[in-house]
Computed example of a mutant assay.
Amino acid sequence: MSQTMKPVTAAAKLGIYLPAAPEEFRTTPIGRAGLEALRADPPQWLVDLRRNGPFPRDVVARKLGVSRSGLVRAGVTEALDADQIGELIADPPDWLVRERETHRAVLAEKERLRHRPDR
């Protein structure tokens, strides 16, 4: 018997926002072969979701160059689409500038610690 995963897991692996997916995808467990088939030859709904969103928080955070915690601190709790993300990038609000700086500093510190000679 083939192993299946919940739709939420499959959506995470595909990098899509589950509530925006078609009902059949949201309600049907998917096997590994089915997931690989979606990756290899994505249907139009998947292509559109990946291009235009709405995107899950981890994808929104990555596109904006901030952490997921930074989104929460800024009060961004809803999924954003490509146009909304584009607007934020084009004219970054204070919170986005601040969170990008924080995120860069955290990543730099992680990198510094990773390359310490005493490790």
Rank of each mutant, 00 (worst) to 15 (best):
E87Q: 15
S67N: 09
N52E: 12
Q3Y: 13
R119Y: 05
A79E: 06
F55N: 09
E78Y: 06
F25C: 07
D91L: 12
A74W: 10
V106E: 11
T27L: 15
L35C: 02
E23V: 12
K13R: 15
E23R: 14
E99A: 02
K63C: 03
L64V: 08
L49H: 00
V72T: 14
A79C: 08
P56L: 03
W45R: 03
D81P: 04
L96S: 10
R51S: 07
P117G: 00
R98P: 01
P43T: 03
R51W: 01
Q44N: 07
A20R: 04
E99N: 07
V76A: 06
E23L: 14
D41F: 05
V59I: 15
V76F: 07
T77K: 13
V76K: 13
R114Y: 05
Q3E: 14
R32L: 10
K13I: 06
R51K: 11
P29T: 10
P92R: 11
L96V: 03
T9A: 09
T102L: 05
L14S: 11
A74G: 09
P93F: 03
Q3T: 13
I89K: 15
M1V: 13
E109L: 13
W95D: 10
K63D: 08
E99C: 07
F55M: 11
V106Y: 04
